[in-house]
């Protein structure tokens, strides 16, 4: 399993043709206290870069973009009642959805952990 990162601070952990998507620790820290999360429902299809989910802090709402094109297998229903999970464990239990990837080639445009770490340092 490999994890990839976007410039918009989403992560996607890929196992075969299934990817689990969430927002990074850096993004969760920038947002502050998450009070609401809207995750996509199973069956929906998103193209790379589409608004796929919404995460809201006390102050503002932010869009979460699909890191790659794919069909949603399931959304993380636990976040509706426990949005704070996104702050507590953003790259674990705070996942947003699982996607069936349409094209694994799209992953080559994303960053690996080391590149993402360097990218955040520049921000």
């Amino acid at each position: 399993m490999s994890t990839y990162y976007t410039e918009d601070h989403e992560w996607i952990a890929v196992d075969g043709d299934v990817g689990t998507v969430g927002i990074t620790k850096y993004a969760a820290e920038q947002l502050g206290d998450v009070v609401f999360v809207e995750v996509p429902e199973g069956g929906a299809t998103y193209a790379k870069g589409d608004d796929m989910a919404v995460v809201e802090s006390v102050k503002a709402a932010s869009d979460v973009y699909a890191p790659v094109t794919g069909d949603v297998i399931e959304g993380n229903g636990e976040l509706a009642d426990a949005p704070e999970t996104v702050n507590e464990d953003p790259e674990g239990k705070g996942w947003f959805c699982k996607l069936k990837l349409s094209s694994a080639c799209e992953l080559t445009g994303l960053m690996d952990a080391e590149a993402y770490k360097a990218y955040c340092k520049e921000l």
Partner: peptide
């Protein structure tokens, strides 16, 4: 805009 975090 914030120190520790808006909620706290």
């Amino acid at each position: 805009v914030q120190f520790d975090g808006v909620k706290s």
